[in-house]
């Protein structure tokens, strides 16, 4: 493998996936370099979210290869794959996906606790990120009391708390108004830039896509076009 490939944060090659008879991805390739922000766009049902789930190692493709931070996901066992995802990848899914029975602070601290971090330290780091996300941790509401936009901010804090090398976000501003979405992206992209993390943003929103360095546009499960925006 070439040196440039060694440096890629994420590399998908010939990835195919289908749900029963519905083909979601047909031979998709994607490369994301260090500190690069890539927007994956396309009409509803084009395979954007499937691509993100495969990149995260949540979903295994039926064909093709995925290399995450230099590791071939297919060659890793389940435990190693989970560890890699937990420690090096931050994921923001649609609608936040918070754990309803945990406080906001513990929701954000969760990835650190799962990675074996000591409780006080994990909660301290979580409080810092919650504050950056504009939420008051100790007195804050429970996840069920949050608006869609607030839940997304907590999800972003949770994705950032491990200081990942790669951030994957699926429609991160989906349930937010223009200004709320802007603040969330400022937080997410600002933190990524500070830490030198790469970002993959799945979005149908052109204003969000325009924050990326490069756009990869999907149609019917295949890459339709790529454009450098920087």
């Amino acid at each position: 493998m070439s040196e440039s490939h060694d440096r890629l944060v994420l590399e998908l090659n010939g990835v195919e996936h289908a749900y029963r008879r519905t083909v979601a991805l047909r031979g998709v390739g994607l490369e994301v370099g260090p500190e690069e922000v890539v927007a994956v766009t396309g009409p509803s049902g084009c395979g954007k979210s499937t691509l993100l789930h495969i990149a995260a190692g949540i979903l295994r493709p039926q064909a093709g290869a995925v290399r995450l931070l230099g590791e071939d996901l297919d060659a890793l066992g389940e435990a190693a794959r989970t560890r890699l995802r937990r420690e090096r990848v931050g994921i923001v899914l649609q609608f936040g996906q918070l754990v309803p029975d945990l406080s906001l602070l513990d929701n954000v601290a969760l990835p650190l606790l799962l990675a074996g971090e000591e409780r006080a330290k994990a909660r301290g780091d979580a409080a810092v990120w919650l504050e950056r996300a504009g939420l008051d941790a100790p007195l804050g509401p429970s996840p069920a009391e949050l608006s869609g936009g607030q839940a997304q901010r907590v999800a972003v804090a949770r994705a950032l708390v491990t200081e990942p090398a790669l951030l994957l976000a699926d429609e991160p501003t989906g349930s937010m108004d223009t200004k709320g979405g802007e603040h969330l992206l400022d937080l997410l992209l600002g933190a990524a830039r500070e830490r030198g993390a790469a970002v993959v943003l799945v979005t149908h929103d052109n204003v969000v896509a325009a924050r990326a360095d490069r756009e990869v546009r999907l149609r019917d499960g295949a890459v339709e076009a790529e454009a450098v925006l920087r």
Binding site: N206, A225, A227, L229, R230
Partner: peptide
């Protein structure tokens, strides 16, 4: 249409970058 989309996104990126 593809090139125009890219040109529009690039312009939008320029506008958003300095907005803060």
């Amino acid at each position: 249409l593809g090139r125009q989309r890219a040109a529009h996104l690039r312009r939008m990126r320029e506008l958003t970058e300095g907005a803060a």
